[in-house]
């Protein structure tokens, strides 16, 4: 019997053909697409905002991408989401996130910076060349994916923000507009969703300012139009649809840490040695894999220890979980 599963297909076949066949052509196409988008904006939208269709993002290869991994199918990445603004169940965001208007969109930069600034999403899209970064993604709920993100290092953006030397942490706030998001009461979250990183974590080249996946702009349910991805931390440390970036002196309040400090630490580095009080973190279920091959061991720092372990030298990671 021939058993052919999705995960047998090499990633080169899954990656949209156009993305790798001729990147230059598509770079041009992307620029044209951006021009069209800019034109649309210039020539009178009612101002209520819109949700543009997904666009191709021309990406360049990156040495920071993780080689040799089987990509999670696009269908699963976009239909199995934790995005509580749109409901607490995994299939809620794909169903409900269409109300999110991603144009116009700005990211405000405030706090300990030489001068507060506001960046337009179209400026951010062009700030740096987009890189394709294939990263492992490990949720605190003990499931995992492999996702080909598109973006550039957050550090590139932070340099543009000009933070003061007194800034020790950076806080991210997600959009919390009740006209666009459900913000369900039963999630128990006080909106907006807030996340934060230590400055050196935020400046680490692996930390990605993310605009797309699978060579296209992010679908709303995955955090359009711009989100953070920190591959060595549990997924909830990678906030979606961000509108504010704030540089602060003290460790900022972060949503899950505030809700259940004994379950979700500020650092929340992927750590198989520190179990969640309610389940083991030693193993994980691979999303999209057949049932008998789902279980796999979880790696320290989600497999990025060589790059990031030095950030935590001398820290007791069982205490600072």
């Amino acid at each position: 019997m021939l058993i052919r599963t999705k995960s047998d297909i090499p990633s080169s076949e899954i990656t949209p053909k156009q993305v790798y066949v001729n990147r230059r052509t598509f770079m041009a196409a992307a620029v044209a697409g951006l021009a069209v988008a800019a034109g649309k904006r210039a020539f009178g939208d009612t101002g209520k905002g819109s949700t543009p269709p997904l666009e191709k993002l021309a990406t360049i290869a990156s040495p920071l991408s993780t080689p040799g991994l089987t990509l999670t199918p696009y269908e699963d990445i976009t239909h199995y989401n934790n995005f509580y603004e749109f409901g607490v169940n995994k299939d809620d965001p794909a169903r409900n996130a269409h109300t999110l208007k991603t144009r116009p969109w700005t990211v405000k930069v405030e706090g300990l910076v030489s001068k507060p600034k506001t960046f337009d999403i179209d400026t951010l899209l062009k700030l740096r060349p987009m890189e394709e970064r294939v990263y492992r993604f490990r949720c605190v709920e003990a499931w995992s994916m492999v996702i080909p993100w598109a973006g550039y290092s957050l550090s590139e953006f932070i340099r543009q923000c000009d933070p003061l030397s007194t800034a020790k942490y950076v806080q991210f706030l997600s959009d919390d507009n009740p006209k666009q998001e459900l913000l369900p009461w039963n999630a128990g979250i006080s909106w907006p969703y807030s996340e934060g990183l230590r400055m050196d974590e935020a400046m680490h080249p692996l930390t990605l300012l993310t605009f797309g996946l699978y060579g296209e702009t992010l679908p709303n349910q995955d955090g359009a139009p711009v989100r953070i991805v920190v591959p060595w931390k549990y997924g909830f440390k990678s906030p979606k649809s961000i509108v504010t970036v704030k540089f602060v002196r003290k460790q900022p309040m972060t949503t899950w840490n505030e809700m259940a400090p004994n379950e979700y630490g500020f650092y929340s580095n992927v750590n198989p040695n520190r179990d969640h009080p309610r389940w083991s973190q030693k193993r994980e279920r691979v999303i999209g894999a057949p049932i008998w091959r789902q279980l796999q061991p979880t790696l320290m720092f989600n497999g990025y220890g060589d790059q990031v372990a030095s950030l935590y030298a001398g820290m007791n990671l069982l205490k600072y979980y």
Binding site: M1, I3, T5, K6, S7, P73, E75, D76, H79, Y80, K90, W143, R285, I287, G288, A289, P290, I291, Q294, L295
Partner: peptide, 15 residues
């Protein structure tokens, strides 16, 4: 899910 469609039990079949 064994024979033809690996997603027959959803994205997280174990769950």
């Amino acid at each position: 899910s064994v024979s033809s469609d690996p997603s027959a039990l959803g994205p997280d079949p174990t769950h």
